[in-house]
Amino acid sequence: MAQLQLKDVNKSFGDVHVIKNVDLEINKGEFVVFVGPSGCGKSTLLRMIAGLETLTSGEISIADRLVMDLPPSKRGIAMVFQSYALYPHMTVYNNMAFSLDLQGFSKSEINERVTEAAKILQMEHLLDRRPAALSGGQRQRVAIGRAIVRDPEVFLFDEPLSNLDAALRHDTRVEISKLHRQLGATTIYVTHDQVEAMTLADKIVVLKEGRVMQVGSPMELFNQPENEFVAGFLGSPKMNFFDGQLVGSADFQGDDVSAQGARLVSTEKSAGDNVKLGIRPQHLVIDEQGALAGNVTLVERLGTETILELLTPGGTLFRFASAESLDVEVGQDLRFSFDAAQAHIF
């Protein structure tokens, strides 16, 4: 049974249609990540689930209850904001107790719940402090603790890591992942960072301009992208695309490269149509007999990885990534081959 269900959800701000016909089902205990470029509507969608934005049309149900007309507090959700939104004049304890106090819980029950949440997040020693006296990571944890004490059906995270520095971001990401396994709570997490999306998610929802582009597990999206956008959005460096024509059922014929037996993504294309061939930089192999030729224009050495930027004779830019530290210089000509089974035709 779906824990959270969105049916044909639409949202317009005046004339601007920001969320278009979104249908989505999220199962109990799933960790779902909404990912997309900025302005794709992922935060708006999250805020609509939270009840902070109204729907223009459509239905949202949480735990089999239609929630469109319920205020945020009655929807069984808890939200962690990007800026944490801690109450600056209250101690950590009171920040966490605030919602319980409003719901009329007894003092002892509030104490029990807050202490338990603090124990889960290992911040019992911080309970008497005010937010101003906490570091960024600690504030983040208080914000999560404030969500935990409410014992919600669904946790909502709105870009919770974007205010942290790189090292802390990694640690907190790991912590959130552990916490999700520990609590087993249904979680929706909004981010523009594909690394967060890939590492955290059971299920990724890729959004573009208010539309769902693809829903699936991280590896599904990575290996079988349903469209050019998803293929280009996930993976670093970006997937390479080459222009050409579709020949036969799944063969690609282009100026720079051809491939037989690649995975045809689109069902609408037929032989002779203009299509694109997509190959991930990691799936290319240096091969002197290879079909793809390129002239190196840039070498990036990241230590763990070497990334080459090349130009084909036809003038198409593409990238090659390898875990080896290659002995290559700018201006050198290289040839590559690839396994057509790992290539996609869009």
Binding site: I77, A78, F81, S83, Y87, P88, S99, Q103
Partner: peptide, 27 residues
């Protein structure tokens, strides 16, 4: 005052009067 603070209070279940008394006035 930060909008997210008030939204957070709404999610926590505060009505306008409670937001006013417990958040706006002290801040």
């Amino acid at each position: 005052l930060p909008r997210e603070l008030l939204e957070s209070a709404r999610i926590d279940g505060a009505n306008h009067l409670q937001i006013f008394v417990r958040l706006i006035v002290p801040l």
